[in-house]
Design a protein around this nucleic acid. Structure first.
Length: 423
RNA sequence: GGAGAGUUGGCAGAGUGGUCGAUUGCGGCGGUCUUGAAAACCGUUGAUCCGAAAGGAUCCGGGGGUUCGAAUCCCUCAUUCUCCGCCA
């Protein structure tokens, strides 16, 4: 969430910026400012009462010691009155704070000044494109058919055992998955990231910390018996490591990487472009997360962007980078780059990574801070990106590299697969 | 799953109803001394909110309660340790 101070001091600027996200913030912002004023005056009032009653409580202690029981009892009465008025004020204050917080989390992050205006995915700005489209014969197969031809991914079996969107990977398919995971992890480690293996279930405090809760609750699988959510991305546990943490400036940047299964209900997205590996309920992803000094977070964003680009280059996949427009960006992001690979048999661009700078939006919600050189406590910036999500990478690899001898494995993966062809 | 014991500041560890936001030690920071460093000595050292400041309020695992007053008493949840049971 945005900082109150920002909203208070830059009302018009906040409203202006959020127009880029097609969000009309004026009335919400004014309501927040009004609630904040009420909160402050109520708190002042309560603080004064408490201060008064603290003084009396101390006096009573002294009076008792001196044996002045009558005076003590008089003071008790007075204290009782103060207490009653404090009791009356407390719910007012709590309610105000609660309403204020509820309003505050409705306000999206401000988009960076470079974010293009726009309504939907069509308005995203293509900032980079590289690689060559493979020349496939007209008989080239989409990946779901290649998957069954070589018996490497079994969607039907997944339907039987679990349900749609939970495929089995088999033989060389399973080994390719494992190879990609290790390749991605090793590449990240080489770039200075520290590997974690996170829990796959998280509590609700973590869900709030990274912003999945409250608004995207329906997108997560939930285990009610234990009140835990299956993670939709490793971003959730990895970023929440730092919830309520104050880092030293010297510890920045924090660079973490984690492989995890990701679970998404994908409620409401049935029907379109969901064949094969294009959209799954359970998939594998390697995620990179950075926590950085506010002055250097955009530098980190560029580094992360370059890291992802280098992975796709090594996998020899044609790809492009988009700068998301205001309308297509997530609620929490200030600037997002999407990576898409070209899957040549489907003739479709598939999103395989999304790299974002959240600035202090997540950090404010989680109270993730650092102590700067002057000893001042400040909010840190958080960033994350997929590096990479597996299923669509696999889809593109299968489709683009199909040959008469089978599916050709790119050079960079050979040490990991230890086979040159699938088939 | 059952029984018992814990949870205090960066860490260790006092504090069982009254001036305790909290003794002390370590660590950190600043200084004296030194060519420099170490040692020694002196000082300093949590977070949040309100306030221009002075100052005030809140926080001793989370939440609730008792009391004029709670780190200290009660309830509840979480968590750690020990023992028993079960188990990859």
């Amino acid at each position: 969430m945005l900082q109150l101070q920002t909203i208070r001091e830059n009302r018009d600027f906040v409203i202006e910026r959020l127009k880029v996200k097609n969000f009309n913030a004026a009335s919400l912002v004014d309501e927040i400012i009004a609630l904040d004023n009420k909160r402050r005056s109520t708190q002042k009032e309560l603080d004064d009462i408490l201060a008064q009653s603290n003084i009396i409580a101390k006096e009573i202690g002294i009076l008792f010691k001196q044996g002045k029981l009558d005076d003590a009892n008089t003071a008790k009465e007075e204290s009782g009155k103060l207490k009653a008025s404090a009791k009356a004020l407390e719910p007012v204050l709590n309610e105000t704070i609660e309403t204020l917080n509820n309003r505050l989390v409705e306000l999206p992050n401000l988009p960076h000044s470079s974010v293009p205006h726009g309504k939907s995915a069509e308005d995203n700005e293509i900032i980079h494109e590289e690689g060559v489209f493979p020349a496939l014969s007209p008989e080239a197969l989409p990946h779901w058919e290649l998957a069954s031809k070589y018996q490497i991914i079994d969607f039907e079996l997944g339907n039987k055992v679990t349900g749609a969107g939970f495929p089995f990977y088999r033989g060389q398919g399973a080994r390719l998955q494992r190879a990609l995971i290790n390749f991605f992890l090793d590449q990240a480690i080489e770039s200075g990231y520290l590997e974690y293996q996170p829990p796959l279930l998280v509590n609700s405090a973590s869900g709030y910390g990274t912003g999945q809760l409250p608004d995207k609750e329906g997108q997560m699988y939930f285990a009610p018996e234990d009140n835990l959510y299956l993670i939709p991305t490793a971003e959730v546990p990895i970023t929440n490591i730092y919830r309520d943490v104050i880092l030293k400036e010297a510890e920045l940047p924090v660079q973490n990487v984690a492989y995890s299964n990701c679970f998404r209900r994908e409620a409401g997205s049935y029907g379109k472009d969901v064949r094969g590996l294009n959209r799954l309920h359970q998939f594998d992803k390697v995620e990179i997360v950075q926590i950085q000094h506010p002055d250097r977070s955009y530098q980190s964003l560029e580094e992360m962007k370059n890291h992802v680009a280098s992975l796709l280059r090594k996998l020899e996949l044609p790809f492009r980078i988009l700068r998301l427009c205001g309308g297509d960006m997530s609620f929490t992001s200030a600037l997002t780059y999407d990576f898409e690979v070209y899957s040549a048999a489907q003739k479709m661009w598939l999103e395989v990574s999304s790299v974002s700078n959240f600035e202090d939006f997540q950090a404010n919600r989680m109270k993730l801070r650092f102590k700067d050189k002057e000893g001042k406590t400040r909010l840190a910036h958080t960033l994350n990106g997929s590096a990479l999500a597996l299923p669509r990478i696999v889809a593109a690899l299968l489709e683009n590299n199909q040959t008469d001898q089978g599916i050709k494995i790119p050079e960079a993966l050979l040490p990991y697969t230890r086979f040159n062809y699938i088939g």
